Amino acid sequence: MARYTGPKVRISRRFNEPVMGENKALQKKNYPPGMHGKTKKRKVSEYATQLAEKQKAKYIYGLLERQFAKMFDKASRKKGVTGEVLLQLLEARLDNTVYRLGIAPTRRAARQLVIHKHVTVNGEIVNIPSFSLKSGDEIGVRERSKSLETISNSLSVQSAKKYAWLEWNNSEMIGKLLHIPLRSDIPENINEQLIVELYSK
């Protein structure tokens, strides 16, 4: 399936947030991209605000429109607050969890590792980035992939990052999803209520 492959900084500048990772250019040019980026801002409609929030969530988690719509539909059918359930489903994706555990430096890189069969779930190789994890699932690095420089470099840099819903054994390179994260635990700056309002129209 296709993915956004354009300039990452451009997306971050559109939302004035490091949506696709930290970048120095965002600090130097803290205004929207394009020839009218510095001009006086127009009044933004309610719909535009809601749409922008959905687009931001899509870029953060690396989903396309159809995938995101399916995820929202799934969330709306589950018990609980739809917006929170949506974020929980996004967080429980295999590619996102690989990124959270520090096995990959970005979600894009995590997606590549999964596709190329470097990741296991409960001991079995899984190459589907959208694979939905459940509480208690163990996510590991395939034995023959443990020496990959990309993985070892990422783990050494991100070892300080800890999330309440994840557990990581660095010596065995195995992580565990302890439980589905609460909304208060998810660090992403997303107003999920705006997304719910958009899809409710």
Rank of each mutant, 00 (worst) to 15 (best):
T5D: 10
E91I: 03
K29L: 12
R111V: 08
L101T: 09
T106M: 05
S12A: 08
A57D: 03
I180L: 02
L51F: 07
L51C: 06
T120E: 14
M173L: 08
Q158Y: 14
A48C: 11
K41D: 10
Q158K: 12
A109H: 07
P7I: 12
R3V: 12
A25G: 08
R3K: 15
A69Y: 07
V126G: 04
G136Y: 12
F131E: 04
K40N: 07
Y199L: 06
L26Y: 03
T150A: 15
I190H: 01
E65T: 09
Y61E: 01
M1Y: 14
N189E: 15
L166R: 03
I186M: 12
K56P: 07
L63R: 00
I186Y: 00
K70D: 08
V9K: 03
V44H: 04
V141M: 08
R42Q: 09
M20P: 04
R14W: 12
T82S: 03
R107Q: 11
L148S: 07
E46F: 11
L87W: 00
N96A: 05
V85H: 03
I190L: 13
R108E: 13
A69F: 06
H116L: 11
Y61V: 03
S152F: 14
I180Y: 00
K58S: 01
S200L: 01
L166F: 11
L178S: 09
S171V: 11
K70P: 07
D73V: 06
N189T: 09
Q50C: 01
R77A: 00
I186W: 08
A69I: 06
M35A: 15
S184W: 05
Y163A: 11
L148P: 02
L155I: 09
T5L: 13
S76C: 03
D73W: 06
M35N: 13
A52P: 04
L86W: 02
A69S: 10
K40F: 10
I103F: 11
R77P: 01
K176Q: 11
M35Y: 12
N127W: 08
P187T: 07
I128N: 12
R183L: 14
R77H: 00
K43L: 14
T5F: 15
P7F: 06
Y61Q: 04
E17R: 15
A52R: 05
G80Q: 03
E149I: 13
G37Y: 05
L51V: 02
K38Y: 08
L113I: 02
N122G: 12
V98K: 02
K117C: 10
S152Q: 15
L133F: 06
T49K: 14
G140Y: 02
K79Y: 12
E172N: 14
L198S: 00
K24M: 13
A52F: 07
L26F: 01
H118G: 02
L178K: 10
R13H: 05
Q27W: 11
S130D: 15
V119P: 01
Q67S: 04
V44G: 08
D185Y: 09
E188F: 12
N153W: 08
A160V: 09
V157Q: 12
V126F: 05
E197H: 05
H179V: 01
I180W: 00
L90G: 00
A75E: 01
L182Q: 15
T120C: 10
R66M: 14
M20I: 05
R107D: 09
K8P: 08
L63H: 04
R77Q: 00
Q50P: 07
K176G: 04
E65K: 10
K54V: 03
L182P: 13
I60A: 02
K41V: 06
L198W: 01
E53R: 05
